[in-house]
């Protein structure tokens, strides 16, 4: 166990001296903080605009439109996008070179002549990543809650705190998926830059290509149905776009995150318990992807080629 902890600590030290990683981590924190402010000021502007509209309507003797429905937690919803964008790339930054650099520096050979197994080395690196990603998300959680109270002058209730906490736990799962993937690529690749770009392609494929394909299908289906007069409002998804998005952990996490933070109109009114039951398949999907990657990682790490 002490060997794994020593490796985890070493990973921390090295990451804390990596300027690019630090820039990304700080960017992530700043964006998550800024997003609360931006979200809040947009909603305030929207409410002010609504007040103006009501006033004008009254002056003209007309009826005022119904007030837009705003859930306070929705102001934090940008964090979901930042996790999909910056969070996943941050996890890739952490993992893509984890094995390759050890191999290049000759330290992997030294590590494995100490009383450690390959599994311990992988565990140590995972522990390090768990600590770093966990800390980052814990800081995000604290900052978001504080800003939520300070900027919006709202005290979140227990359910809102639980929603944010569950969202960040799932964000942790999502980021660890990319870390494990990057670690696996790092085990296999013989060139750090190549490993990084491969992971970027994987990231783009899951976070952008698949959701875009689903979106293209949805637009197409809407245009056709609209023409025949069957549908007048763009659906949030169609059966085919839902099926396409099943192949994207990013799309799954975005839907789950938006539902938890009440940014998705269909799920926003649901109680947390009901929502969680409804979202169980998505939660299991994200956990399952993680588990599959971990199995793959430990299986690959056992092989001798790791050294070469």
């Amino acid at each position: 166990m002490s060997g794994r902890v020593a490796i985890a600590q070493k990973e921390w030290r090295i990451a804390s001296r990596d300027s690019v990683f630090l820039v990304m981590a700080i960017l992530f924190l700043i964006m998550s903080i800024a997003s609360v402010y931006i979200g809040s000021s947009t909603k305030s502007a929207e409410l002010k605009a609504y007040a103006d509209i009501v006033q004008v309507a009254r002056q003209q003797g007309g009826t005022a439109p119904a007030a837009p429905l705003i859930y306070p937690l929705e102001m934090l919803a940008n964090i979901v996008d930042y996790i999909v964008m910056i969070g996943a790339v941050l996890a890739i930054f952490l993992g893509y070179n984890a094995f390759h650099s050890e191999r290049e520096n000759g330290t992997l050979r030294i590590l494995l002549t100490h009383p450690l197994t390959q599994k311990d080395v992988v565990m140590g690196k995972l522990l390090g990543a768990i600590g770093m990603i966990g800390m980052l998300l814990a800081a995000t959680f604290a900052f978001n809650l504080l800003l939520f109270i300070a900027v919006d002058k709202l005290v979140p209730n227990t359910e809102e705190v639980a929603r944010l906490a569950i969202c960040l736990v799932m964000a942790f799962t999502y980021m660890m998926m990319f870390y494990s993937g990057a670690l696996w690529v790092s085990l296999k690749a013989r060139d750090g830059g190549f490993a990084f770009l491969i992971m970027m392609i994987v990231w783009i494929f899951f976070s952008f290509v698949i959701p875009q394909l689903a979106d293209t299908q949805r637009n197409y289906a809407f245009a056709i149905s609209n023409l025949s007069g069957l549908v007048t409002k763009m659906p949030s998804e169609t059966a085919a776009s839902h099926l396409i998005n099943l192949f994207s952990p990013a799309a799954q996490f975005t839907n789950l995150g938006n539902a938890l933070l009440q940014a998705d109109a269909d799920n926003a009114p649901l109680r947390l318990g009901v929502l969680l039951i409804r979202q169980t398949p998505v939660i299991l999907y994200l956990l399952g992807c993680n588990l599959a990657l971990l199995i793959l990682l430990f299986h690959s790490a056992k092989r001798e080629e790791v050294l070469e």
């Binding site: 300027s19 690019v20 820039v23 990304m24 960017l27 964006m31 800024a34 997003s35 931006i38 979200g39 000021s41 947009t42 502007a45 929207e46 605009a49 940008n78 996008d81 930042y82 964008m85 910056i86 790339v89 930054f93 070179n97 750090g192 830059g193 990084f196 770009l197 970027m200």
Partner: peptide, 27 residues
């Protein structure tokens, strides 16, 4: 490698973060 990481960070800022802030601020 550092150049690549830096480039990806800049790309994220220019192609994701800035437009995303703009979209969010769009009432």
């Amino acid at each position: 490698e550092k150049a690549l990481l830096l480039m990806v960070t800049i790309w994220l800022i220019l192609a994701f973060i800035l437009p995303q802030i703009g979209d969010t601020m769009d009432m």
